[in-house]
Design a binder for these strands. Structure first.
Lengths: 233, 233
DNA sequence: ACAAAAGTGTTAGCGGTACACCCATGT
DNA sequence: ACATGGGTGTACCGCTAACACTTTTGT
C-alpha cells in the first residue's frame, strides 16, 4: 500500500476564446501504467522525511516552479479500487494508493513568472481531458470547495497581487462563481467587511475614471487558511 | 511509515454535575509505547482490504459497539514528529505515523444501547485528561468543525432520535454552541428552514403544555454529509 | 461632446433579534 | 389558581438587491 500526496493547482487566466476569465489547472501526462498516457494531477509518493504539506509544496515547486501563497489540504482519498483502470479491465490490479490531496491558488503576478515543468500542460477547468484514476471527481471537489470558501472567507486575496482595484477583486469573484455581480453593491460589501484598505494611490492611463488601489489588511489570511491546529499539519 | 485511521466520537450527555448537557467522547488507554498508559483517540492501522471510511466504521464498532449514522472525514495529520513523546525525550524515536481522522456523532437513543469496548472510557470534552500524540489538538479541531457545521447544516439531526420536540433540537444547539438561544426565534428559524416537519403527534405527561413531535425531512442528511465525490471516499 | 468605468445615493424587502404576550397542561 | 414550558405576534435593525445617478478620466 502506497501513500501519495497530490495537488490541484488553480489559477485564473483568460478563456480560450479570450472573452472572459476562468480557472485553469496544470496536469501531468502519466508515464507509467495504470492510465499510461492519460492526464493526471501532479503528485508524488510521500517521503519519510517530509510532512504532508511539505510534500505538497515540493510537488508545486516541481510542477510550476514556485511556492504559491495559498495551500490547503483538500481531502484524503482511500477507496480500495481507486487505482484500477476501469477502461482496461484486463490490466493487472495495480498496487493500492491512498492519496492526500492539497489544493493551491496561484496569484496572477506569480502565474506570469511561472516555469512549467516537464510533461506539464494547463487546461481550463471546464474543458478537461479524460483524467486518470478518480482525479476528475477530485477536481470537481476542489472547485466546489473554492466556490464555497469564496463566499465566507477573503480567499480572493490568494489570486491577487499586493495592490489591486476593487474591480479586479470583483472579476475574481465573477470568474470563480461564474456569474456577474453588481459593481456598486460588491464595492460596498467588500469595503464594509474591512478585509481591504485603500493605499491612497490610483491607476492611471485607463481611458476612463482612474480607479483607486487597495491592499488586503495584514490580518487577512496569508497562506494556510483554516488548517487545523497549526503545529500538527 | 505507517498509515492509521483514528476517530473522534461525540455524544451529548448530562454534565458531570447534572446541571446541563455537554459533549462527551470515548478515549482508549494506550497499551504500547510511545505514550504508554496515556489516553488516546480510538484508532487502528489501515488494512489492505479496507477503504478509509470502512476502517473508521470498523473502529467505531469495536470501540462503542455500534454504527453511528454520522461519519465524516476530519483531516489527515502527517507531521514528521507527531508520534514523538515530548515528555520523555530519551525514548527511542518511534516509527512515523500518518493519521487520517474521522469524526462521528452518536444519537441519544443509540448512546443508550451502546456497548463500551475494552480499555474505553468516556470524558466530557471540556475536561479531558492529557492526551497522547497531538490528539488534544485533533479533538479541538473536531469540536470547531462541529460548531461550524451546526450553523449551516442540519447536523443536529445526527444527535436526535427519529421523532423529537423542537425544544430538544434547541437543547442540542445550546449544548454544542455553549450558549442559550431564544426559544421563540429558534422555533421559527428551524421551521422556516424546511428541514423539519410535524408528525402530528404530541408528547403527553409533561406537567405543562404538551409539545408537538417533529421529524427531519427525508432529504435531510442521513450519514456522510458533505463528503467529496461519493464514489471515491 | 461622448463613452466608459469609478463611485455614491436611495429604496424596498428579507431575515435575525428582542421581547411581550397568549395557550395548554399537571399539580 | 398557579407555575411551567409551548407557541404566536410584533416592532426594530442591519444587510442585500436593484437601479438611478454623479464623477473623472481618455479620445
Amino acid at each position: 500500500m502506497q501513500l501519495a500526496v497530490s495537488t490541484v493547482i488553480l489559477a485564473l487566466r483568460p478563456t480560450p476564446d479570450g472573452s472572459g476569465t476562468t480557472l485553469w489547472l496544470p496536469l501531468v501526462r502519466r508515464i507509467r501504467e495504470p492510465f499510461l498516457g492519460a492526464w493526471a494531477l501532479p503528485g508524488e509518493p510521500l517521503e519519510e522525511h517530509m510532512s504532508l504539506v511539505e510534500a505538497a509544496r515540493a510537488r508545486l515547486r516541481h510542477t510550476i516552479g514556485l511556492d504559491p501563497n495559498y495551500l490547503e489540504q483538500l481531502y484524503a482519498f482511500g477507496g480500495v479500487d481507486r487505482s484500477r483502470d476501469g477502461s482496461s479491465p484486463d490490466a493487472p490490479c495495480p498496487e493500492r494508493v491512498v492519496s492526500i490531496v492539497y489544493w493551491a491558488l496561484v496569484r496572477a503576478d506569480e502565474d506570469a513568472r511561472m516555469v512549467a515543468g516537464e510533461n506539464v500542460a494547463w487546461f481550463p477547468a471546464e474543458q478537461l481531458p479524460a483524467l486518470a484514476f478518480d482525479h476528475a471527481a477530485i477536481v470537481d471537489y476542489a472547485l466546489a470547495r473554492l466556490r464555497a470558501k469564496l463566499e465566507y472567507t477573503p480567499i480572493a486575496h490568494a489570486f491577487l497581487p499586493d495592490e489591486f482595484t476593487l474591480t479586479e477583486v470583483r472579476e475574481v469573484y465573477e470568474a470563480v462563481l461564474g456569474r456577474g455581480l453588481d459593481p456598486a453593491n460588491f464595492r460596498r460589501q467588500i469595503l464594509a467587511s474591512g478585509a481591504v484598505e485603500p493605499t491612497g494611490e490610483k491607476v492611471t492611463g485607463t481611458s476612463h475614471r482612474p480607479p483607486s488601489l487597495y491592499r488586503y489588511r495584514p490580518d487577512s489570511v496569508a497562506t494556510s487558511p483554516t488548517p487545523p491546529p497549526r503545529s500538527a499539519a
